[in-house]
């Protein structure tokens, strides 16, 4: 059938994922037979250097982490765009190079803007 593509070379990867997951679950489940289990109140508290935990553990955290996550999306997608370009670089030649210079310059504008806005600055 034209247009149907079965990614058969990925079958080993799928089997590997299944085996790796089964290894993790299997070891944990078999372990329950041998492990002792004596829970008591103090043991089940979250560790806070030996004293009783105070307040919510999931407190507010710095907004920087959100900014880093957003910048990551931008830059990682950009890196993925660069990969195919790098692979076919030989075949396209000088045209590809000029295109990529333009692409990276556009990206650099955003990068400099983020830098000036102190997105990379942790105080």
């Amino acid at each position: 059938m034209p247009g149907t593509y079965i990614p058969s070379e990925y079958l080993p990867v799928l089997i590997f994922i299944i085996i790796a997951t089964a290894f993790g679950f299997g070891a944990l489940i078999i372990g329950t037979v041998f492990r002792l289990k004596k829970p008591y109140y103090e043991k089940l508290l979250p560790y806070e250097s030996g004293i009783d935990p105070k307040g919510e553990p999931r407190t507010r955290f710095a907004v920087r982490f959100y900014i880093i996550a957003m910048l990551f999306v931008v830059f990682d997608v950009e890196a993925i765009f660069i990969y195919p370009w790098a692979i076919v670089f030989d075949k396209i030649g000088i045209f590809a190079f000029i295109e990529m210079v333009l692409f990276i310059v556009i990206l650099l504008v955003g990068y400099i803007y983020a830098w000036k806005k102190e997105a990379f600055q942790w105080d």
């Binding site: 806070e48 553990p57 407190t59 955290f61 920087r64 990551f72």
Partner: peptide, 17 residues
């Protein structure tokens, strides 16, 4: 659900990405 683990997870995720 522990403060240390939460901060560690945040830091690690930001650093790795």
């Amino acid at each position: 659900n522990s403060k240390y683990a939460f901060l560690g997870g945040l830091r690690s995720a930001a650093q790795v990405i």
